[in-house]
């Protein structure tokens, strides 16, 4: 970036040497981060015999898709041997409504708290924000009982509910931070023109918050898809999300350990969030720095 701050200054061979060193270190770290991904993919494409004979870092001799087929449709998760497919669907059914609802409510809440400042708005926000930081262990027990009483225990709608409730603190935070940067004049002008609370929200505020919506949706999608704690605490067997099913596949103690199937299963579970990251990396990073407050 900055001329002045560079370690490197124009000095001939010394500069070249430093530059080489710089790239060597950066390259080494690239390898460090990529090796697990490489191992995952290459192991998933090997046969069990090849895994035993060869080494971890050797690329597969031939592409063998059997492990993938097995991980997707016949691997045993506990006692059921239908592969990850049904659990992958569970995760989809969980993540779509949970992301949409929590994002929508967060937008509405952030808008009401910043553009219609009423007495106590800041206090309400501060109190709600706290929910983004609590270790969820502290709510697991009462939530398990509440879901039971609502008849939602062990169901996907139950998970959607939990993710919406505990995602709200963050989505509100995110939209509040975005709306604070939006001029109040726009809302006031619309009010003078006779637009109401919802009219302004849907026709003016929402269309201009596309960036905030994208970042929030990506963040929520990653968080909820990757969740494990709520999944393992609030679902059983058939209703497990894919992360829990993956863990069950890997830790099923009966039979031969099929490392290639484990790795294929891990990639399947990781694929949706990885795809989002590759396709929308910049937005993902913005979410990370915004979510920095959350951690």
């Amino acid at each position: 970036m900055k001329q002045a701050s560079g370690i490197v200054r124009p000095k001939g061979w010394w500069q070249t040497l430093q530059r080489l060193f710089l790239f060597a270190v950066l390259g080494l770290f690239c390898i460090y981060y990529l090796v697990p991904l490489f191992v995952m993919v290459s192991t998933s494409l090997k046969s069990l015999a090849e895994i035993r004979e060869g080494t971890l870092l050797a690329p597969p001799r031939a592409i063998n898709g059997e492990a993938w087929a097995k991980a997707w449709s016949t691997a045993c998760v506990g006692v059921r041997c239908n592969g990850l497919a049904p659990y992958f669907m569970n995760s989809v059914l969980m993540v779509v409504p949970a992301v949409l609802i929590s994002t929508f409510l967060g937008a509405l809440n952030g808008y009401a708290l910043t553009k219609w400042r009423f007495r106590g708005a800041d206090m309400i926000f501060a109190l709600m924000l706290f929910g983004a930081f609590i270790p969820f262990q502290v709510i697991l027990l009462p939530m398990a009982r509440t879901l039971g009483e609502l008849g939602l225990a062990g169901t996907i709608p139950g998970l959607v509910f939990v993710h919406t409730v505990y995602g709200l603190a963050f989505t509100t935070l995110f939209f509040r931070n975005f709306f604070i940067g939006v001029s109040d004049g726009i809302v006031q002008a619309a009010q003078i023109d006779g637009a109401g609370f919802f009219g302004i929200f849907f026709r003016i505020v929402l269309p201009m918050s596309i960036p905030a919506i994208v970042v929030t949706v990506i963040w929520q999608f990653t968080q909820i898809w990757n969740d494990f704690l709520f999944g393992i605490a609030f679902t059983v067997g058939e209703s497990n999300p894919v992360t829990v099913a993956l863990n069950n596949v890997v830790n099923t103690s009966t039979g031969v350990k099929e490392y290639n199937v484990d790795m294929a299963a891990a990639i399947i579970a990781a694929l949706p969030t990885l795809a989002v990251y590759v396709l929308a990396g910049a937005w993902f990073v913005r979410g990370l720095s915004a979510g920095a407050v959350k951690g």
């Binding site: 697990p36 191992v39 192991t43 971890l56 992360t243 484990d262 891990a266 990396g281 990370l288």
Partner: peptide, 26 residues
């Protein structure tokens, strides 16, 4: 992009991969 992609993974996936890489024996 390479340095940051692990953040997009679930910790369960990370755990599964490292469990395999650190497997004594294989």
């Amino acid at each position: 992009t390479i340095y940051l992609y692990p953040m997009a993974l679930s910790f369960v996936v990370t755990g599964t991969v490292w469990k395999w890489m650190l497997n004594p024996g294989l």
